[in-house]
């Protein structure tokens, strides 16, 4: 696996909704090697606080060596990233981890909640490259409200996929949680890809298990290095013991994970 450290230049910073931001950076070596579901470790500045890099999934790879990161400001580190403007430098390490395996035949369903939509967009685009078209593939997206969902939904639907939306407050699409949309879809799909908050992924994973549909989950944990040395990003697995999200994941077969109830 090839990993690079790049002092990248920010080419665009967009405020999408409230505390959600999208950074576009020039990182040609990482962009060229990136696969859907992989992530980068981002240094938020040169000072010692925050100290550690932040893991962010790769949202999109553009053709000219740029890549996009989509994130919500949740603390000091992401706050600093949101303050970066065009022309400023950002230190990235990547692409890291094992991404989604592109399932061969049969309709797929991509399920994204909140910032979990980030890697799914890259995946949705890649799937269009390896298959003739969206066909019967479907995409389920959920967020807190219309403001957070509207723009991402427009981008996904621009790819030609059939979209089903849900918001916590009912301001767009189904009033409720995104896994509730899955029941109608599951009978007609062969593969589910999911990324979002832990309870949502657990629900989707269990629904898929019951229906006998293959499911891949993209997990998120605390992580100090992202490079396989700190061993901080452990996740309990059904077979016993732990795996590491940074190297064994972040994408796992849903049945491999020992889900906490």
């Amino acid at each position: 696996m090839t990993e690079f450290q790049e002092k990248s230049t920010v080419t665009a910073r967009e405020s999408l909704a409230g505390d959600v931001f999208r950074l576009t950076v020039q990182a040609p070596r990482i962009a060229a090697a990136a696969q859907p579901g992989q992530f980068v470790m981002v240094r938020t500045g040169d000072t010692l606080d925050p100290l550690l890099r932040r893991p962010l999934s790769i949202h999109q790879v553009l053709s000219d060596g740029r890549l996009r990161l989509l994130f919500k400001v949740v603390g000091k580190g992401t706050g600093l990233l949101a303050g970066l403007g065009p022309g400023l430098k950002i230190d990235l390490i990547g692409p890291l981890g094992r991404g989604f395996s592109l399932a061969p035949a049969g309709p797929a369903c991509l399920v994204g909640g909140g910032m979990g939509m980030a890697p799914l967009y890259f995946l949705a685009r890649r799937l269009l490259q390896v298959r003739p078209g969206p066909g019967d593939d479907q995409i389920l997206l959920g967020a807190r409200n219309r403001a957070e969902l509207e723009l991402p939904a427009a981008e996904f639907s621009g790819l030609g996929y059939r979209l089903h939306l849900a918001t916590d407050d009912g301001s767009l699409g189904h009033h409720g949680l995104v896994p509730e949309l899955l029941d109608d879809v599951l009978p007609s799909v062969r593969q589910v890809y999911v990324c979002g908050p832990y309870p949502m992924m657990r629900t989707v994973a269990l629904k898929c298990r019951t229906a006998g549909v293959a499911c891949q989950v993209s997990l998120e944990t605390h992580m100090a290095c992202g490079l396989g040395v700190c061993l901080g990003c452990a996740v309990a697995v059904a077979a016993g013991g732990y795996k590491h999200v940074c190297k064994d994941g972040p994408v796992f077969a849903a049945d491999e994970v020992l889900w906490k109830m």
């Binding site: 605390h222 452990a234 309990a236």
Partner: peptide, 23 residues
């Protein structure tokens, strides 16, 4: 050794705490 259950690491001011459990 399998190590400790997660969370195993957390960032603190200019540092971090770890309880990897000698995995």
């Amino acid at each position: 050794r399998p190590g400790n259950p997660p969370p195993r690491v957390v960032e603190t001011a200019c540092g971090m705490l770890n309880a990897i459990g000698l995995e």
